[in-house]
Amino acid sequence: MFELILMAIVSGVLMGIIYGLIGIGMNILYGVMRIVNFAHGEFMMLGAYLAFTLNRAFGLSSLQAILVVMPVFFILGVMLHALFYNRIQQSEDPEIASFLTFFGVSLVITSLILMIWKADPRSVPLPFEKVSFFLGPVFLSTGRLVSALICVLAVAAISFFLYRTYTGKAVRAIIENRDAVSILGIDVHRVSALVFGIGLAIVAITGCLVTLSFPAITPVLGQTYTNIAFLVIVLGGLGSPLGSMLGGLVYGLAESLSSVFLPLALSPLVAFVILVVMVMIRPQGLLGKVSTRI
């Protein structure tokens, strides 16, 4: 039993780091633009399927695929910004409008994936000789370990950007107070476009990593990741990008520990129950200050 729990904790932390990055991708869009990207998981799946095709066509591994998919998604993000941003901001309730718009986008992506890649599960061969190994009593999946390491690198890069660069500071200023920054001469529109690009580039990383961490991908998995992203950012606090890491870890642990104690069919329940309880009790997130926006 002890070993089971220890393993659950280790795998929970690894998955938690990945979930954290998934959350950051969604949260940065929300923080800066109040855009609720309900197509987050579908974009991830699109990235995963691109990694699949890159592997089939050019023999690239999932890790190499990241380098190709990231810039593509960055451009995709900037394009989506140009297409949707102004219209969404002009609507009566921009948050709900963005939510519904991206729900529409999620349906479009799912149907495109179904048309291009069909509904069968797909998988990408792992680029490691040993797909798993024992570290003392703990059984580790190489794919998940490498994924978590890449996520840590990505989070470090994002933190550097947010706290050490001028543009990153502007991003944080916008998250703090969107109305005040335009007076300061920060071009909110341009920063938003950049953040949309960055947000989707993060999605590209996590999408490719899904093919490393899980045995197979299917078109309908997207919804699951959108739900996880939501849960993670609600736990960490909406609009607080690095809070998502904490949210991710909490959910990763909750999920893997619950799999020890709960029947398999009920494990998806954990995410939703935590989500509902969290919003009802602490909508500002685990660390967030009480906000007056709600």
Binding site: S91, E92, L100, T101, G104, V105, S106, L107
Partner: peptide
């Protein structure tokens, strides 16, 4: 049948952005 989902998605986007 496959287009169904696509049409639904495009309709939602169109409605929210152009015909709220």
């Amino acid at each position: 049948p496959l287009l169904n989902l696509l049409v639904l998605g495009v309709t939602i986007i169109f409605l929210i952005l152009f015909l709220p």
